[in-house]
Amino acid sequence: TIDEIIKALEQAVKDNKPIQVGNYTVTSADEAEKLAKKLKKEY
């Protein structure tokens, strides 16, 4: 679900690790936030 994706992003940001979500690779908190907002609009 979208919530699980967002939790995974938040965890990756805390661990400061890049995370791959679908076609996106998120490497920073800023990118994670942008991706989360984008995904919320889509779903």
Rank of each mutant, 00 (worst) to 15 (best):
T1C: 15
D30C: 12
G22I: 02
L39V: 02
D3I: 12
N16E: 05
Q11N: 08
A36I: 15
Y43I: 14
I19K: 03
E42A: 08
K37W: 00
K17Q: 10
E4H: 04
I19G: 04
N16D: 06
Y24G: 10
D30H: 08
T27H: 12
L9A: 03
K37L: 09
G22S: 02
K38H: 12
T25S: 09
K17M: 14
V26W: 02
D15Y: 05
N23G: 15
E31T: 03
K41W: 12
Q11D: 07
I5H: 03
D15A: 10
E10H: 06
K17E: 04
A36D: 01
E10Y: 10
L35E: 02
Q20T: 15
A8G: 04
K7A: 13
D15M: 09
Q20A: 10
I6E: 00
D30N: 06
V26I: 10
T27A: 13
I5N: 01
E33D: 12
Y43G: 09
A8Y: 07
A29R: 06
S28V: 02
K40T: 08
V13H: 05
N16L: 05
I6A: 01
P18S: 11
I2E: 02
V26P: 11
V21G: 04
V26M: 00
I2V: 09
Y24R: 14
V21L: 14
Y43E: 09
K7L: 09
K14P: 01
K17D: 02
V13W: 11
A29S: 10
I2R: 04
V26C: 15
V13E: 02
A12L: 09
S28N: 13
G22A: 04
N23E: 15
Q11K: 09
Q20Y: 06
G22F: 04
K38I: 11
Y43Q: 14
V21T: 03
I5G: 00
E42P: 02
N16K: 09
V13Q: 05
S28M: 06
E10A: 07
K34F: 12
A32V: 05
D3K: 11
D15G: 06
V13M: 14
Q11L: 08
D30E: 15
A29N: 03
A12T: 04
E33P: 00
N16F: 15
K41Q: 14
I19A: 05
L9D: 02
V26T: 07
A32I: 07
L39T: 01
L9N: 01
A36V: 15
S28A: 05
Q20E: 10
K17G: 04
L35M: 05
E10W: 11
I2K: 03
E42Q: 12
